[in-house]
């Protein structure tokens, strides 16, 4: 049997274990909540993670390109980027998949075709790990950008109005604003 078929067969087990291993990264009381609460609006973190990893897994199986898998990685990483995790803790779940798959396929490991395909698959997972790094960084950058934006916007209109700037007018023909009296 090909690796792809084997993984298809074992998909639900692998996904369940993957999900559980991600929950392991949360405190025990939280884990219980994340696992039990089924309503997607009452428990959005677990819902998005389980939906996200399923799509990521599907994409690995169907040999999809990076654009296809990126939105689903984003779903999971965007959440973990603001939670109490270091970068490595936030992204470790991607690499966990390799061990989970190997554990699940232990009895088939002797078949040469499987181990060759597995090597390819693991390369894919590694590539996904690198993509995750990009996504994580973008999320963190976004947070810093939002901080700056908020500070600017808080008084932006006022500064504009209070003539405290000396700059090129917005529209052609408008007088140049150059009044720094208010700053002294």
């Amino acid at each position: 049997m090909s690796l792809e078929k084997l993984l298809q067969q074992k998909k639900s087990v692998i996904l369940e274990r993957w999900f559980d291993s991600i929950l392991e990264t949360y405190p025990a009381d939280t884990r219980q909540f994340l696992k039990k609460k089924k309503n997607r609006f009452a428990n959005p973190v677990a819902h998005e993670i389980s939906r996200g990893i399923e799509e990521i897994f599907n994409n690995i199986l169907k040999d999809a390109n990076s654009e296809d898998v990126s939105p689903f990685l984003d779903k999971v990483i965007r959440i973990r980027a603001v939670q109490d995790f270091s970068p490595s803790q936030a992204l470790g779940f991607i690499f966990d998949l390799k061990k989970l798959i190997r554990d699940e396929l232990a009895e088939n490991m002797g078949e040469s075709r499987i181990s060759e395909d597995l090597w390819e698959l693991e390369r894919k997972i590694d590539a996904m790990g690198l993509m995750s790094l990009d996504i994580y960084t973008k999320c963190r950058e976004k947070l810093y950008e939002l901080r700056v934006k908020e500070v600017k916007n808080r008084v932006g209109r006022l500064i504009e109005r209070a003539n405290m700037m000396c700059g090129i007018p917005e529209k052609e023909g408008d007088p140049e604003v150059c009044n720094t009296d208010n700053l002294t």
Binding site: P27, A28, D29, D84, F85, Q89, L91, G92, F95, D96
Partner: peptide, 25 residues
Amino acid sequence: PPEELAKVDHTPPKKGWMDMPVELK
């Protein structure tokens, strides 16, 4: 192993919540 390195070590129940030191992040 990497999966151990990446684990988050803030699982409180072994200690009661009262004994968890506050960590201001």
